[in-house]
């Protein structure tokens, strides 16, 4: 009987240890995901060098940022980072945003539906092919891909991705909000 209890104890302890490791692993993934800094990217030929957060919020909901703008901007989603991106920009999940787009498209609005890519290289190629497009990439990928593709990073509220307080730098996101708040109050 004793051997049975001992073996059960060992099994339960192993299950507990592996569960704990699993939880820690997931937490690690979550933290890693939260720390990824994003850069707003456009083709070199794009007229946009700097945008405000409000303009970005308009663009990624398919709204024109300028009344005279004739053609909707093509949004190119880099799938692995889109959840973090939409959470930061709107406080909503990618799932909610996808539903928003479905409503928009099927109600007959004049919009260009977003294109989604998991491969950053394909996303960049599509971005460069379409002069009137915008995307987002993690900093490391952007730095790597800008050597091979004619793309440029867009400054947000006057700050580049290298600056402290850049809106999509998650570690200084709070400061970014404060700066944006100050800019809005001025």
């Amino acid at each position: 009987m004793q051997w049975f209890f001992n073996s059960m104890k060992t099994k339960i302890s192993a299950i507990f240890r592996s569960s704990l490791l699993g939880v820690l692993f997931l937490m690690g993934l979550h933290v890693q995901n939260g720390q990824a800094q994003l850069v707003i990217v456009v083709p070199q030929s794009s007229p946009y060098d700097s945008l405000t957060v409000t303009q970005l919020r308009h663009i990624f909901k398919g709204e024109p940022i300028d009344g005279a703008q004739q053609q909707p901007i093509q949004i190119i989603e880099f799938k692995p980072e889109s959840e973090a991106f939409y959470q930061r920009l709107y406080g909503l999940s990618r799932y909610s945003i996808a539903k928003y787009w479905l409503r928009l498209i099927f109600s007959g609005e004049r919009v260009t539906p977003p294109k989604s890519f998991s491969d950053p290289d394909k996303a960049c190629r599509y971005l460069c092919k379409n002069g009137h497009a915008i995307s987002f990439l993690p900093v490391e990928l952007y730095q790597k891909l800008q050597k091979s593709h004619p793309i440029k990073a867009v400054a947000i509220d006057g700050l580049t991705y290298r600056d402290d307080g850049y809106y999509f730098n998650h570690q200084s996101g709070k400061r970014g909000d404060e700066i944006q708040g100050k800019a809005a109050s001025q």
């Binding site: 539903k99 479905l102 409503r103 099927f106 109600s107 007959g108």
Partner: peptide, 19 residues
């Protein structure tokens, strides 16, 4: 011919993937 813009849903009345 258009779906009459009435309420939140009439313009996407039959578009079940959108709700």
């Amino acid at each position: 011919k258009f779906l009459t813009p009435y309420g939140i849903y009439n313009e996407i009345h039959d578009v079940a993937p959108a709700y």
